[in-house]
Amino acid sequence: MRLGLQVPIFTWPNGQNELGATFARIAESADEAGLYSFWVMDHFFQIGFAGPPEMEMLEGWSALAFAAARTKRIKLGTMVTGVTYRHPGLLVKTATTLDVLSQGRSYFGIGAAWNEEEHLGLGVPFPSLKERFERLEETLQIAHQMWSGDEKPYEGEHYHLARPLNSPQAVHKPHPPILIGGVGEKKTLRMIAQYGDACNFFARIGDDVLKHKLNVLREHCATFNRPYEEIEKTSLDQLAITKDGRNGSLSPQAAIDLFGKLGEMGIDQAIFSLANVHEPEVFEILATEIVPVVDKLPVAGR
């Protein structure tokens, strides 16, 4: 089983003057601890679960490019890019650039977008939910076409690309893994089966709900004659981990037990944010007590 770290909050005790240095240290520590992947949100304002909009928020793809230069092996991705934020041709070019410069270490995380406040605040059009899903599907089609090297014009309802040239091409073959965010059963899980390489579920939606969503994904895969096992199943959680499980945090064994339960339900990669991510101690715990054990945990269906 694999573990990934998401960093959704950039407000740390040492202040904004040290934000870059702290973020670099976190990325480097995650890499050195043996974590499989490193994720940032793609938002422009901070979102409700973490605090008010005014809290520091780094632009996702720039932050990942910075992290790529400070790391050696860890995978890098957005959890997830809103399809409305960037024209799809430019988005694929941005994602390809990260993949090339990181030597094939990128994920392409994408979703239909939802945060109306930041759209309105920064003057980004915020179409209806129906249109956002239409734009998501067209963007997925464009991404596959550009990464295949097919330069013929793309004519969709919302996007028109006369020559979707993409040079240089991505290092990861056939393309960076496409992770589609969301759990909607009719549209999102269908798109994952048709276009995606990975999905993401909140870890604590409940065992029965998680199993149901995985079964729906399995059914969509059957519709498209897509092996269900080809889709990487990931989860997302918010944790605090300490040596002794103090103040409501998880001890190393409690964290291992949590990840093991997810593996038993078929989750390939458990991604989590850490409330104490700015503390060096947590990476020592991950490197010495958690990652070596979780790496050996079985995943149901694998």
Score class of each variant (00 low, 15 high):
residue 31 D to Q: 04
residue 133 F to L: 12
residue 196 G to E: 08
residue 44 F to P: 06
residue 221 C to A: 11
residue 24 A to V: 07
residue 34 G to V: 04
residue 121 G to C: 14
residue 266 G to T: 07
residue 189 L to V: 10
residue 202 F to R: 13
residue 172 H to L: 11
residue 287 A to Y: 01
residue 154 Y to T: 00
residue 35 L to D: 01
residue 200 N to P: 10
residue 209 V to E: 15
residue 126 F to I: 05
residue 207 D to K: 15
residue 146 M to H: 07
residue 201 F to L: 06
residue 185 E to L: 05
residue 16 Q to V: 15
residue 204 R to V: 13
residue 78 T to M: 12
residue 122 L to K: 13
residue 136 L to Q: 13
residue 173 K to W: 05
residue 153 P to S: 01
residue 214 L to H: 09
residue 139 T to F: 08
residue 45 F to H: 13
residue 256 I to G: 04
residue 27 A to S: 06
residue 94 T to G: 11
residue 294 V to P: 00
residue 30 A to S: 03
residue 88 P to C: 00
residue 58 L to S: 05
residue 151 E to Q: 05
residue 45 F to M: 10
residue 204 R to D: 15
residue 207 D to I: 15
residue 148 S to H: 05
residue 142 I to Y: 10
residue 216 V to D: 08
residue 257 D to Y: 11
residue 165 L to R: 13
residue 21 A to R: 15
residue 283 F to N: 00
residue 273 S to I: 05
residue 41 M to W: 15
residue 196 G to F: 13
residue 53 P to R: 03
residue 4 G to M: 05
residue 109 G to F: 08
residue 108 F to H: 02
residue 247 N to T: 06
residue 37 S to Q: 00
residue 133 F to Y: 15
residue 166 N to C: 08
residue 175 H to W: 09
residue 276 N to E: 14
residue 282 V to N: 00
residue 272 F to W: 05
residue 93 K to C: 04
residue 297 L to A: 02
residue 146 M to F: 00
residue 180 I to D: 07
residue 35 L to T: 03
residue 237 D to S: 14
residue 31 D to V: 06
residue 56 E to M: 15
residue 31 D to T: 09
residue 291 V to P: 05
residue 255 A to T: 03
residue 212 H to N: 05
residue 3 L to C: 03
residue 41 M to S: 14
residue 125 P to F: 02
residue 175 H to P: 04
residue 73 R to C: 01
residue 220 H to N: 04
residue 230 E to S: 13
residue 8 P to Y: 01
residue 35 L to W: 06
residue 44 F to W: 11
residue 223 T to E: 14
residue 155 E to G: 07
residue 155 E to I: 12
residue 64 L to S: 02
residue 173 K to A: 12
residue 60 G to Y: 10
residue 195 Y to K: 10
residue 134 E to V: 01
residue 221 C to L: 13
residue 85 Y to N: 09
residue 285 I to M: 11
residue 224 F to H: 14
residue 102 S to H: 08
residue 238 Q to R: 13
residue 105 R to W: 04
residue 302 R to K: 12
residue 182 G to S: 01
residue 268 D to C: 04
residue 254 A to K: 02
residue 75 K to V: 06
residue 101 L to V: 12
residue 146 M to K: 07
residue 48 G to F: 13
residue 83 V to I: 13
residue 5 L to I: 09
residue 89 G to A: 06
residue 284 E to F: 08
residue 267 I to N: 08
